[in-house]
Amino acid sequence: MTSTPAAATGDSQPAVNLTINGIAVAARPAMTLVEAAWHGGVPRVTGVSCLESVCGSCRVLLRRGKEVTVDLACQTFVEEGIEAVFLPPQATPKHHYEISEFTDSWNNLARFHEIFPEASHCRHCHGCVRSCPKGIDVESAINLAAAGHFRDAGEMFLECVMCDLCDSACPEQIAPAHVGLFCRRVSAHFRLRPPNLIQRLEEQRKERLLGQASPDSHE
């Protein structure tokens, strides 16, 4: 039994040498970059939370020779010679909308382009696609969204963890992850009307009315 994920394997195998935030670390093979950062005593690594690549916090910049990529540190394994830098937290999004203010779904596309005016400016540079740690075809999804195919676009973002690495990569600052979330939200908000749920809500409403009618019954 181990209490920390980092303490799993013995010291028999040769170390993997890399740098994290500029600090040399001798890690064990099969460690993730988060485990390696802890193992190597790298200070001030604040952007770590779920350790299973769903929270989108542990964003890292990776340098292998001349190649530079981004990923999530908890799903990236140590490699000899790799340079990893933990990135600062995401900026607060600049777009604004409250879903409760949406009333007429015929206007959704117009509202979408007001909220995300950059979404129709896609240059097809593939930066978002290359940066996505979840392998989402971000670019195609954004173009679907800009054409009003919110449900299909939203479905493509099912596995999105809102790490916003796509936003960092976008020269037009489209904020693709938030576009994807918008698509999912309007689809649920306007289209999800499940009969089994509605039936039970209706039963509960009638029970409440009955309860109010008889003065001696309380919840």
Binding site: I99, L181, R184, S187, A188, L192, P195
Partner: peptide
């Protein structure tokens, strides 16, 4: 209403 999706059956339940 906040915009969360759930799995549906073919009939929409």
């Amino acid at each position: 209403e906040e915009g969360m999706q759930f799995e549906q059956t073919a009939s929409g339940d």
